[in-house]
């Protein structure tokens, strides 16, 4: 099941290479909406942890088990981020996150052709958010790395 919030608690942990060194961390995000996004319509702003923003260049995005760079999503108009699935954002950060509690935020969204405003590019100075629907929340959460 998904958690109601945009940022998911499940899946929040450090990630390690074969030698067992922490190379970064991962966090799940879900679309609080009524339709999944074609990858070419997915828009990413940032993952922010304790004030440090990680932009697309330091992230990869896992959907249905397949990992994509942000650029790779631009032309994928027939691959769907399913609504009932959390996208796992893998963030490069040597040493990963320290054990303990962190303030984790995310800014992301999807282009909606049926609404008038722009191409959906996200300004990284925007505050965390997803879709701008009134009933969506949980784009900033206190979460613990064990």
């Amino acid at each position: 099941m998904l958690e109601y919030e945009g940022v998911q608690y499940k899946g929040f942990r450090n990630i390690y290479n074969e030698e067992g060194e922490a190379t970064g961390f991962q966090v799940g995000i879900r679309m609080i909406g009524y339709r999944g996004a074609w990858l070419s319509e997915f828009r990413f702003g940032y993952i922010e942890v304790d004030g440090e923003k990680f932009l697309a260049d330091r992230c990869t995005f896992v959907v249905s088990g397949v990992e994509y760079t942000y650029e790779e999503t631009f032309n994928l108009g027939r691959v769907k981020w399913p609504l009932n699935e959390a996208m796992i954002v893998r963030v490069q950060k040597p040493g990963g996150l320290a054990q303990g509690s962190h303030t984790v935020s995310a800014l992301y969204g999807q282009v909606a052709s049926y609404v008038p405003f722009g191409s959906g590019e996200l300004d990284i100075n925007q505050k965390p958010g997803g879709h701008g629907h009134s009933e969506s929340f949980g784009y900033t959460r206190e979460m613990i790395i064990v």
Binding site: M1, Y4, K10, G11, R13, V146
Partner: peptide, 17 residues
């Protein structure tokens, strides 16, 4: 209600427990 067994397994993996 809003969780299933796999969700618990994922939390366990997150915590190395």
């Amino acid at each position: 209600v809003n969780m299933d067994l796999e969700d618990i397994f994922m939390h366990m993996q997150d915590m190395g427990a």
